[in-house]
Computed example of a mutant assay.
Amino acid sequence: MMHDYDLNVRCLIHGKIAVVDEPTVYYRRFSNPIINLSGKTKWLDMCLSIESKFVLDNYLSLGYDDMKKIFPHLEACNRKEIKFRFLIDACKNKQVRLSSWAFERLVSCLENNKDFFNTNEFDFQYKDYIDLYKINSKNVIGKNHKEKLYNDVKVLIKKMFGLH
């Protein structure tokens, strides 16, 4: 479903762009939204959810100089820190698909570096992680279960990283 979007992102990252003032593509739409590939269906939502992660992963494959060029607000970051800060910023985004992707990648990053909170090179504290967790759980978890899950995850993460 997102092959055009993926191609556009890759072209913007790796190529030069130009504007063509005339139509180059025709798009056919049916009156029945179920028939349209871009119609609002559960299948489309599932495809977009899965495929958007692959497209967003393109940003994590960027080199340091490209990251600074595309995301100028990260210019002060060093080579080791820039992708980590990018994920933190994306976790705070209001678009649920983007913030969920970023939080999932951040969790993977922390899981792969069990000593992260002890070495703490990036001045990112455990409380900062919990704050991001709260932001990302509000759209996913029902209000009644949120507090219990929050406390369970807090205990689990403390055990995982050897924090007491």
Score class of each variant (00 low, 15 high):
1 M>G: 02
1 M>C: 04
7 L>T: 15
9 V>M: 15
10 R>S: 14
11 C>I: 15
12 L>M: 15
13 I>A: 15
14 H>A: 13
15 G>E: 12
17 I>R: 09
17 I>M: 12
20 V>A: 05
22 E>M: 11
22 E>D: 06
24 T>A: 02
25 V>N: 13
27 Y>S: 10
27 Y>N: 10
34 I>E: 02
34 I>F: 04
36 N>I: 12
37 L>K: 11
39 G>E: 14
40 K>P: 00
40 K>V: 09
41 T>M: 05
45 D>I: 07
46 M>E: 10
46 M>I: 11
48 L>T: 08
48 L>D: 03
48 L>I: 09
49 S>M: 05
51 E>C: 13
55 V>M: 14
56 L>G: 07
60 L>C: 10
63 G>A: 11
64 Y>E: 05
64 Y>G: 01
65 D>E: 15
65 D>W: 14
66 D>G: 01
68 K>I: 14
68 K>C: 09
70 I>D: 02
71 F>N: 01
73 H>D: 04
73 H>F: 08
75 E>Y: 14
78 N>T: 11
79 R>S: 12
82 I>P: 06
83 K>Y: 04
83 K>D: 03
84 F>D: 06
86 F>C: 04
87 L>T: 07
87 L>K: 06
90 A>T: 01
91 C>V: 08
91 C>A: 06
96 V>L: 07
96 V>M: 05
97 R>M: 05
101 W>N: 06
101 W>Y: 15
103 F>E: 03
104 E>W: 04
107 V>Y: 07
108 S>T: 07
112 N>C: 00
113 N>C: 09
115 D>M: 09
115 D>N: 12
115 D>K: 13
117 F>L: 03
118 N>H: 15
118 N>I: 13
119 T>R: 15
123 D>W: 13
125 Q>C: 04
125 Q>Y: 15
126 Y>Q: 05
131 D>S: 11
136 N>H: 07
137 S>W: 00
137 S>V: 05
138 K>N: 01
139 N>Q: 10
139 N>V: 06
140 V>E: 08
143 K>V: 07
153 V>E: 08
155 V>Q: 07
156 L>A: 13
157 I>V: 12
157 I>P: 01
158 K>N: 04
159 K>W: 00
162 G>Q: 12
164 H>S: 15
